[in-house]
Design a protein around this nucleic acid. Structure first.
Lengths: 189, 189
DNA sequence: CCCATTTGCCTAAAGCATTTAGGTAGATGC
DNA sequence: GCATCTACCTAAATGCTTTAGGCAAATGGG
């Protein structure tokens, strides 16, 4: 029997590609087996379960997103950094909708700890260094940024903006402008 | 054979309850059949498919959410209206996580047209009447509000805020304050 | 009141995904 | 060259979805 050369890494990458093609929910161990031209049961030596596979894809996506974020942030500050980081999120979600969905897959605490989640939080904090926010307000701001980025991108992906003018790209830049203004002028408690 | 009294409406309500108990993804025609003490195939006379069932649950959730929103908006304006509406979203998601997830189930255009989606959009516009935004900016603002509400609520539901101070409720009110300030002071293009 | 029709539920069966158990042959290493 | 490990296999159980065809209870017109 010729060996197909299946490894957890190749499965994860193929799973990520499959997710982008047909949607993360449709990523299935069976479909992956078909693509590797191998029987389904064989994959269970490389991956513990369907949930394990999805978790790996999620971790890959979080990692990729964090890498892109870090690259965008390098050498930038203030509104520049904010806008670049925002675009990373949106572009990634548009380029890789399946992976982006995967990045929101519910991780068990153990997987979450090993994920790039912490890097994401750190980068948000780094962006806020360009603004004058102190102790509790910076956390509120981090949460706001996360909410806007994630919320906008998922609504756009769901098609919520696609049937009305103006172009979502236009709204995106204006919203980033607005966030910048808000952060420079954060209201006191 | 005693009749179990299954109707599409009862199935939908039971499905919504099931979603809140075990998660929307775990809502299954089979489980519903068990709860009605009826064979699975019988349900297919009342509901076209699993997708049809989920769509009905989504429509129910959108309707409920819109009803609550309308009630909250009645007799309120400006920041009052904004805060009340925001709380409706968050409270609904916390009370009914499964239904809230359902409300974001991908609807086909036909179902979307028959949904309460339009009411949601109208209510957002109504809130903005308390602020001074013109033509394109009000649309950007609608999209921002939608993004923040949805984004915050889904991140909180996913547990993103649960392992760090401060209390998510605190961040929520501060974020609504910030949005109010932003809307009163929307930056020019 | 009776019978025809409709309606609500049933059994049977096919299709596909997940997962476990146990086997075989090719690759690796002493 | 032989033992072992590894990658893949077959077989089988379980569970959800969906369609086809059947029977019996409810309904309603004559």
């Amino acid at each position: 029997m010729a060996r197909a050369g299946v490894t957890p890494e190749r499965l994860t990458r193929a799973g990520a590609e499959l997710a982008d093609e047909v949607g993360f929910e449709q990523v299935t161990v069976s479909e992956l087996a078909r693509r590797f031209d191998v029987k389904v049961a064989s994959l269970y030596s490389h991956v513990k379960s369907s949930h394990d596979l999805k978790t790996r894809i999620a971790l890959l996506a979080l990692e990729e997103l964090a890498d892109r974020g870090a690259a965008a942030l390098a050498g930038r500050a203030g509104k520049d950094a904010l806008a670049a980081f925002a675009d990373v999120y949106r572009d990634y979600a548009l380029e890789h909708p399946g992976r982006y969905t995967a990045a929101r897959y519910r991780l068990d605490p153990e997987a979450a700890a090993a994920s790039a989640g912490a890097r994401h939080a750190q980068m948000m904090r780094a962006i806020l260094r360009g603004y004058d926010l102190t102790e509790p307000d910076d956390t509120h701001a981090v949460r706001l940024l996360g909410s806007v980025f994630h919320g906008y991108v998922s609504l756009e992906a769901a098609g919520s903006f696609s049937h009305s003018a103006p172009d979502p790209r236009e709204s995106w830049t204006r919203i980033v402008d607005a966030l910048d203004a808000l952060l420079r002028n954060w209201p006191a408690a």
